[in-house]
Computed example of a mutant assay.
Amino acid sequence: MRLYALCDQDMLDSNGVSLDAFLELAKTHKAEIIQYRAKNADIAYIKQQLIHIRKNFDGFVIVNDSYELVEFCDGVHIGQEDLRAIDEDIFKAIRVLREVINSDKILGLSTHNEEEILQANEMDLNYIGLGAYRDTSTKSDVSHVLGKELDVLAAKSKHLVAAIGGVRLDDRFDNVAYHVIGSGLLK
């Protein structure tokens, strides 16, 4: 299992966990990637946190949505809704995003079903996040839990797949490159 640690600022705050404590947990579990997500913070705060993570973590650092801060990390992860905020034509949105972040940066996209995976196969991405695998308390808008179907769908992706949504450290998949664990690291 390869670990992709999701560091959600709201989750840290609600659990009374510091960023440094999360980074230590990620290191203990040998995380290769940390994605920093702060849906309710301003750009200056997100920048400060990315700089702190970069100084204290040797793996890849990905920012969620805030592509204007890509110079402070290794790449960007974007969700379907945020992609459409760039352009209603999702293929054009990815092209625009790729121009902004350049080809030397990592670009990941959340997917939830076969249609979105097949669309992603036609995009200049490095990986997809696929899920949700289980119900999760950190995302209130999970409309469809994939369960075991996630691994079957992952086989349809030409990109590396990161399993998202309620994934645990002990879950096993055949077609998934990364387990994305957020609040599960705190338990």
Rank of each mutant, 00 (worst) to 15 (best):
D170R: 14
D8C: 04
S103F: 07
D10P: 00
D20V: 02
D89Q: 08
R84S: 11
G16H: 08
N175A: 04
G16K: 05
A26D: 15
L169A: 08
S140F: 05
Y45R: 15
E114S: 09
R37D: 05
F91I: 13
I34L: 03
D20F: 01
N64F: 03
V152H: 13
R134M: 13
A38L: 03
E115K: 06
D141T: 05
Q35F: 06
E115V: 13
F22P: 15
I34C: 07
L6F: 02
G184H: 02
N102M: 04
T111H: 03
D8M: 05
M123S: 09
I78C: 05
D170Y: 12
L3C: 13
H29K: 14
A26S: 15
G108L: 05
R168L: 12
K156G: 05
R84T: 13
S103R: 11
E71T: 15
V61D: 12
K139N: 10
V96W: 01
Q80W: 07
L125E: 12
F60R: 10
E116R: 03
E71W: 01
I33R: 05
D87H: 14
T28G: 08
N40G: 00
L69P: 02
V63T: 15
G182P: 15
V76F: 13
D87N: 15
A177W: 12
G166C: 04
F60C: 07
N126C: 03
F173W: 08
K92Y: 03
L185P: 12
L186T: 05
N175C: 03
G108P: 12
S140Y: 04
K105F: 09
D20K: 09
I86D: 07
H52F: 11
S157R: 04
S157W: 01
V176M: 06
G147F: 09
Y127Q: 09
R168V: 10
L160K: 14
R98F: 01
K39M: 08
K47W: 05
D58E: 13
V167N: 11
R37T: 06
A31V: 09
S183M: 11
V161Q: 09
D151T: 13
H52V: 06
D10G: 02
H52Q: 14
K55A: 14
F60V: 11
V63L: 03
L23Y: 00
L69T: 03
I34R: 03
S140K: 13
Y127E: 11
E114I: 08
D170M: 07
V100I: 12
K139T: 07
K156I: 06
I51Q: 14
L25N: 11
L97W: 11
N56P: 08
D74P: 07
L150K: 11
